[in-house]
């Protein structure tokens, strides 16, 4: 159904709690934007590279993480070079590269399900006005809906292709929305029928 970016492993980074990894990312992110410049960038870059080595990820994974942004970074480099010279151009582009690699490091070493569990654990001591059961329901429903909506879209695309309308966004979006909204109402009726509200 969905291919996660997760790379299996047993390194300390794989085993660390998702919360700590996210906090680490926030620290690196803040340091890179608020820090004194090159020293923090060097330190952050070294930390991220050490992280990749520690998690036994290959340079291939780093390249794959940077590839979607290669054009935008190249453009940014050119603009900064023209506006303010080599030093700032290199700094800004390298800072983005380090940030993106740091974020990719977390994504590559953490399963999505671990994040959901972590989020729920984080919410457990939250006050009563936080609708915990609803958040859990929304996340699990969304994960269930992803393949459903994709199948629905594919079905409608084939139906409209028979009419020569497969490139027409309106002819795809209207039936997609109407059918999706209808099934959402059926599903909420089913949830009501099982007295979900009583538990909240």
């Amino acid at each position: 159904m969905l291919t996660e970016a997760y790379i299996p492993g047993t390194s300390p980074l794989h085993r660390a709690r998702p919360l700590w990894k996210v906090l680490g990312l926030i620290v690196i992110c803040t340091a890179l934007f608020a820090g004194p410049g090159w020293p923090t960038l060097g330190l952050g870059g070294a930390a991220v590279l050490a992280g990749f080595a520690l998690a036994r990820l290959s340079p291939r994974h780093a390249v794959r993480a940077l590839r979607p942004l290669i054009w935008i970074l190249a453009l940014l480099f050119a603009v900064q070079l023209w506006l303010s010279g080599w030093a700032l151009a290199g700094f800004v582009v390298l800072r983005f590269a380090v940030l993106i690699l740091a974020a990719a490091l977390i994504t590559l070493t953490t399963r999505s399900s671990e994040f959901v569990d972590g989020l729920m654990a984080l919410l457990a001591p939250a006050p009563a006005w936080v609708p915990k059961a609803r958040i859990a329901l929304a996340i699990s429903l969304a994960l269930r809906f992803l393949p459903m909506v994709r199948d629905l879209l594919e079905e409608i695309r084939q139906a409209q292709a028979a009419r020569g309308l497969e490139r027409n966004l309106i002819a795809l979006a209207v039936p997609l929305l109407l059918r999706a909204l209808k099934s959402a109402d059926d599903i909420s009726a089913a949830i009501y029928a099982r007295s979900f509200d009583a538990a909240d």
């Binding site: 609708p131 929304a138 809906f145 992803l146 909506v149 994709r150 909204l181 909420s188």
Partner: peptide, 23 residues
């Protein structure tokens, strides 16, 4: 907020994802 709202929220998150498959 009703359960029906929660279902619609989840549904639209999935619709956003489905729109990503348009090249």
């Amino acid at each position: 907020m009703e359960t029906r709202d929660t279902v619609f929220i989840a549904l639209f998150a999935a619709i956003m994802a489905a729109l990503a498959v348009f090249p």
